[in-house]
Amino acid sequence: MNIFRLAGDMTHLLSILVLLLKIYATKSCSGVSRKTQELYAIVFLARYLDLFTDFISVYNTFMKIVFIASSLAIVWCIRVHPMVKRSYDKDLDTFRHYLLVAASFLLALFLHEKFTFLEIFWAFSIYLEAVAILPQLVLLQRSGNVDNLTGQYVFFLGAYRGLYILNWIYRYLTEPRFTRWIACVSGVVQTALYADFFYYYFISWKNNSKLKLPA
C-alpha cells in the first residue's frame, strides 16, 4: 500500500460520504443520476465476489463491505425513501445504462485474465466502472447548474481515479513484476472521461463562481 493508493481510496470514500451527506441533509437527490449509482452497485457486487474466496487484508475486506453497503444504501434512498424518491427527475436521467452493462459484460467475455467465473465478473466490473460515470456526467451537462455537493462528489470521484494512476506508476516503478493491463488501461479511459468536468470545475474554482457546464 503506497500513499497514492491510500489517498485514492480515501477520496473514493469521501466522494461517497459527500453524496450520502447531500442526500441526507437535503433529503433530495436532485442532480444525482440513479443510473450511475445503480451501475456502481453492480460494479462493487461483481468485483467483490472474491470477498468469500480471497483474503487480502482486513483493510481490503472492510473497504469492500463499505463500498457494497454504501452503494446499495444510495440506490435504496433514491428508489425507496419517500422524500428522496420524489426529488428524482427521471426525465433528465435518460442514459441507456443497460447498454453499458451489456457492452462491458460482452467485453469481459473476450478480454479477461482467466476464463473463470470470478475473473470474468472481475473484468466486467472494471469495464463497467470505467464508464459508469457517463449517466451522471450527461445528467449534469443537461441540467447545466451543478449544486456544490454534487460537484464535489464528482470531483472526489475523479480525484480518486487520478490518484490510482499515480499509484500504478509508483507500483510499476517499485514492483518488479507489476503488469495489469486490464485495470490500468480501463483506469486511464475512466480518468479521461473526467477531463472535461475537471476543466470547468477548476475554472469555476479559479473565478470563485458557481460550477456551470456548457450545454
Binding site: R47, D54, I56, N60, M63, W122, Y164, R177, A183
Partner: peptide, 10 residues
C-alpha cells in the same frame, strides 16, 4: 504475485 491474489486493489 501470489496466485489468486492478483486483485489486491479495490
Amino acid at each position: 504475485v501470489v496466485k489468486g491474489k492478483i486483485h489486491d486493489e479495490l
